[in-house]
């Protein structure tokens, strides 16, 4: 492989670019990472990239950050991961810092507040549409336990206002138990 400084620079520049210009969240960014590092640079093999993406998606936290960690680590170890993380969080950090300044100065401006008010209704619609799709996926999965989890978790968070961290912990634990039961069934 090319010398290390050059590799790190390339990791930094390409991750920075992806992070600054990717709208639409983590799933989009890992696809673009694959294009860059597998198809363009040939630094990672296709199959291995699939595994890296699976890891990025199953670990907690932002998928874009997780993706940067796995790719950076795979290419140049801890330093590679650090460089990739820095490049990933730098664009949102700068953009949101600038916006916060303007937000405080302009939130009371008539046009800005009307614009934001309309966009709030828009974002509510975007979230609703995401929820329809995700919930549809769960329902079509036809697994009664999963559907029950969805309904109960909704009641717990929306009606009973239970702390979401407890809901996640309980459902995670439930997942461990379900997997153990399935494994026992398979070995029998």
């Amino acid at each position: 492989m090319e010398n290390k400084k050059h590799v790190l620079l390339k990791i930094f520049v390409s991750t920075l670019y992806l992070s600054a210009f990717t709208f639409g969240g983590g799933y989009v960014i890992v696809t673009l990472m694959k294009k860059k590092f597998v198809d363009e640079y040939h630094w990672i093999e296709d199959g291995e990239m699939l595994d890296l993406v699976a890891i990025a998606q199953s670990a907690p936290g932002a998928i874009a950050v997780n993706g940067a960690i796995v790719v950076g680590y795979k290419l140049a170890g801890i330093i590679g991961a650090a460089v990739a993380i820095l490049a990933t969080i730098l664009p949102p950090f700068v953009i949101i810092s600038l916006i916060s300044v303007f937000y405080n100065a302009f939130r009371t401006n008539f046009l800005v507040s009307q614009m934001l008010e309309g966009m709030q209704a828009g974002v509510a619609a975007v979230i609703a549409s995401v929820v329809f799709e995700m919930a549809g996926g769960v329902i079509h999965g036809n697994n009664p336990v999963s559907i029950a989890i969805m309904v109960l978790a909704f009641i717990a968070s929306c009606v009973l206002q239970i702390n979401v961290i407890y809901i996640i912990l309980i459902c995670g634990l439930l997942g461990v138990i379900r997997t153990l039961i399935e494994k026992r069934r398979e070995t029998k």
Binding site: M134, I149, A153, I168, L174
Partner: peptide, 9 residues
């Protein structure tokens, strides 16, 4: 098991 709960939240 987490995914349905995440949708709900």
């Amino acid at each position: 098991s987490l995914r349905p709960a995440v949708v709900a939240m």
